[in-house]
C-alpha cells in the first residue's frame, strides 16, 4: 500500500484539490480513496484499465459528491476505466501528459471549458447551457467528443 500511495497519491490529491480548492478536504478525499482501495482491492480489475485512471476518477467523483453534499454514488465495483495501462507507463508519463495537454490545448475554448465545467465543477449539462447560453444538445455533444478526443490523442 505504501508503494501504491507513493506512486498515485499525487494524482488523487491533485484532482481533489483542483475540485475542492481546499487542502484539508482534499486530504480527506485522498484518505477516503486509499482506504477504499485497501478495503476492496478486488474492486479494481487490472486487466480492464489503469489503476491511476481508476483512482483519479474515483477521487473526482468523491470530491463532486462532497461539493454537492450527497452520499457517495460511485459504485467502485462497476467502475471500469478505458485506459490501457501501457498508455501511461511511468517511463512514458511525461510524453502522455504532454499529449493530453496538447489535445486540450487544441480544443476550441468553448469545448474545453464545457468538459472542464462538467468534470471539475460537477455542473450538469443544463447548468453549463445556462452559463454559456449554448443549446443543451450542443453541450452534450461537446462533452462527449471532448472526452473521446482526449483518449484518442493517447492512442494515436
Amino acid at each position: 500500500m505504501r508503494e501504491l500511495y507513493d506512486r498515485y497519491s499525487g494524482i488523487v490529491y491533485s484532482v481533489a484539490l483542483r475540485i475542492l480548492g481546499d487542502t484539508g478536504t482534499a486530504e480527506d478525499i485522498l484518505q477516503d480513496v486509499f482506504i477504499k482501495l485497501w478495503r476492496s482491492p478486488h474492486a479494481f480489475d487490472g486487466n480492464r484499465g489503469s489503476l491511476a485512471g481508476w483512482l483519479a476518477v474515483i477521487a473526482r467523483n468523491r470530491a463532486i459528491d462532497h461539493i454537492r453534499q450527497r452520499r457517495p454514488e460511485t459504485d467502485v465495483e462497476n467502475l471500469v476505466i478505458g485506459i490501457e495501462p501501457d498508455m501511461v507507463q511511468t517511463a512514458d508519463w511525461n510524453r502522455a501528459l504532454s499529449k493530453i495537454r496538447e489535445s486540450l490545448g487544441s480544443m476550441p475554448g468553448i469545448q474545453r471549458s464545457a468538459i472542464e465545467m462538467a468534470f471539475f465543477d460537477g455542473l450538469t449539462h443544463t447548468e453549463i447551457a445556462e452559463k454559456t447560453g449554448e443549446r443543451l444538445g450542443t453541450i452534450k455533444t461537446r462533452i462527449r467528443t471532448g472526452l473521446k478526443a482526449l483518449r484518442k490523442a493517447l492512442t494515436e
Binding site: G53, I81, L104, R144
Partner: peptide
C-alpha cells in the same frame, strides 16, 4: 469505458500537487 478513460486522462492533465507528508 472509453469515456471514463477520457475522464481519467482529463484528471491527469492537472497532476502536480503533492499531498503533505502527514497525509501518508
Amino acid at each position: 469505458e472509453e469515456l471514463r478513460g477520457g475522464m481519467g486522462l482529463l484528471a491527469f492533465s492537472i497532476s502536480g500537487a503533492k499531498p503533505p507528508v502527514r497525509a501518508r
